[in-house]
Write a protein that binds this DNA or RNA. Structure first.
Lengths: 208, 208
DNA sequence: ACATAACTGGACTGCGTGGTCCAATCGGGC
DNA sequence: GCCCGATTGGACCACGCAGTCCAGTTATGT
């Protein structure tokens, strides 16, 4: 019953609805966001919404896809440019600055949705798990680069490091959002960076 | 209008309601839990609920207090016994085992509530921030003990380390819950422990 | 120009929700 | 036994919610 838009006009309507929903969900959570709110913000009507989405769950899943495209793919280019400790620190700085600019009010949209929906909406949970996985894969690619440059021990498990780094970032964002204090995020990132640095090849032992 | 219970019977009724609410909120989130659900599970009536709580917000705040008493104060005794790396690892192991036993379905009740309520309910946000703070304080006390035993450099900022450790634990729980995979938590904890160990006094340099 | 499909507006519905109200019951003190 | 406040049961209400429906309008292809 719900279909992809077949015309340019339809595509834009759908996009407007998803973008409005994403903004509201980011600020209030999925459950707390009503469809009427979304439609008011998107300046659209009920029939438009149900023309493109089967129900609210489907809309939320579209929001997840939208946020994934925005957040994860958005950081992809930043991550792709990192090949030194300075580059890593610079990325961390932008994360803290971004939270500070937003008064620590949103944290990570993916993380918030994950916390809310993981035990409620199985399909959404899987989508979010995939988002985290692609994010972790990007982190891992960056860590591989650092390893290839000799900044990290060759035998380090970069996949596991990507997971732990992502975890620390998410946790830091959660604490910062809860306490409205960007320093919580800063502390977390300092630890994440410090751990990676501690995995540098031992200085006294030359490579064979 | 809402009052403290004045009799033993009242105290037990209130407790039953809060416990039922805590269980449901832990599984479904606060917004998704209805008062009727709570009352059915607690085998209580509307008037009983509104006899002790002003409104749903007040009930949720009581749930936060209940979970804080359960989770934070619950780990306090475990944390209090840690004075070595082995002790730390043992605590980490119990965390992973606990998640595994629950099929990674709940994560941390405090963390989940924080993610959901931080930008919606200001009073709840402050309560949760306080919960995190007392949790961090307990972690810090443990880290101070490790430092006093010479396992961590004397100049280490244990307050910041407590924050980062807490962040990594929370993030690991979130990733594990989202992917239904306890290994995500394991990876995060390995990193948290590894970072702390990297702050050991330099072996080649004796204390003055 | 016409047929056909895509899209849109908004009234409408049924239901679950948080919250109110009051009469009934309980139980300890006197 | 009697009193009085603490407690309880549950009917009731107003309302916001997700979801339905259909008549109307706009675009597309030929």
């Amino acid at each position: 019953m719900p279909e992809e838009p077949k015309t340019e006009r339809g595509r834009r309507t759908r996009e407007r609805i998803v973008a409005a929903a994403a903004g509201l969900v980011e600020r209030q959570g999925a459950e707390a966001t009503s469809l009427d709110q979304v439609l008011a913000e998107a300046r659209a009507s009920k029939s438009q919404l149900y023309h493109y989405f089967a129900d609210k769950h489907a809309l939320i899943r579209a929001v997840i896809a939208w946020q994934t495209a925005t957040v994860v793919d958005g950081t992809a280019e930043q991550l792709a440019g990192i090949d030194s400790w300075d580059g890593l620190d610079a990325w961390f700085d932008t994360l803290v600055a971004h939270q500070q600019a937003l008064d620590c009010r949103v944290g990570c949209p993916i993380g918030s949705l994950a916390a809310e929906l993981a035990d409620t909406d199985e399909a959404a949970r899987q989508d979010l798990a995939r988002s985290f996985d692609t994010w972790a894969a990007q982190l891992r690619a960056m860590l591989d680069r650092l390893r290839d440059r000799g900044l990290i021990r060759p035998d380090a498990d970069t996949a596991a490091l990507a997971q732990s780094t992502l975890a620390t970032v998410q946790g830091g964002l959660l604490l910062a959002k809860t306490s409205r204090d960007p320093q919580r995020l800063r502390a977390a990132l300092t630890a994440a960076g410090g751990y990676l640095r501690s995995l540098a090849p031992l200085p006294g032992r030359a490579a064979p």
